[in-house]
Amino acid sequence: MFGLFKKKSELDQLREQYKKLQKESFELSKTNRSSADKKAAEAEEVFKKIEALKEKEK
């Protein structure tokens, strides 16, 4: 109940964004390959940010 209003961490937000971009890329790959590649590239950038945050926390 109390976790309902808890703000998500930056890492959690990036993970959600990465997951969303990967899904969009997959859906676009069925119809428009160039757009799918752009979404995959965006997802890769988000993934790099996630890895950087993980390294920073250590």
Rank of each mutant, 00 (worst) to 15 (best):
K20F: 09
E10S: 10
K54V: 03
K58R: 10
A40F: 11
E10H: 04
Q22R: 15
S29G: 13
F26N: 15
K20W: 04
A52N: 13
A36N: 06
L53H: 07
S25G: 12
F47Y: 11
F5P: 02
K23W: 04
L53A: 03
S25W: 04
E10G: 06
A36C: 01
K56N: 00
L28Q: 14
Q17A: 14
G3F: 14
E16N: 12
G3Y: 06
K8G: 00
K30Q: 11
A43Y: 01
E51K: 11
E55T: 11
S35Q: 12
K20N: 09
F47H: 10
K20I: 03
K23H: 14
K54T: 12
S25H: 03
V46E: 02
E44T: 11
E55R: 13
K38P: 04
K38T: 07
E44G: 03
L11R: 13
E57M: 12
E55A: 07
L53C: 09
S25V: 00
D37S: 03
K6M: 05
A43Q: 00
Y18R: 07
L21P: 00
F5L: 09
L53N: 04
E27D: 10
F47P: 07
S34F: 11
S9K: 14
A43L: 02
A41C: 09
S35Y: 08
E27T: 15
Q22S: 13
K8T: 05
M1P: 12
F5R: 06
A41S: 15
A41E: 15
L53E: 00
K58L: 10
K7M: 10
A36D: 07
K49Q: 08
E51F: 00
E45S: 12
N32M: 05
S25T: 03
L14I: 04
R15W: 03
E42Q: 14
Q17F: 04
K49R: 15
K49C: 11
K54P: 00
E16A: 08
R15S: 07
K20C: 06
G3E: 09
K58I: 01
A40T: 12
Q13V: 10
K19N: 04
A36L: 02
E55F: 09
D12I: 02
E57S: 01
N32E: 06
R15Q: 12
D37W: 06
F26K: 15
A52I: 01
K39N: 03
K30P: 05
R15Y: 11
L11E: 08
L4M: 09
E51T: 02
T31N: 13
L53V: 01
Q13S: 12
K38D: 08
K6Y: 05
E44H: 05
S25M: 05
K39Y: 08
L21C: 00
M1W: 12
E24D: 15
E44K: 09
S9C: 10
E24A: 09
K19Q: 10
K20S: 08
I50A: 05
E24W: 10
K48T: 06
E27I: 13
D12R: 01
L53Q: 13
E24N: 15
A36P: 03
S25R: 01
L53M: 12
E27N: 09
E10C: 03
K39V: 04
E10Y: 01
S34E: 11
K8W: 02
I50Y: 06
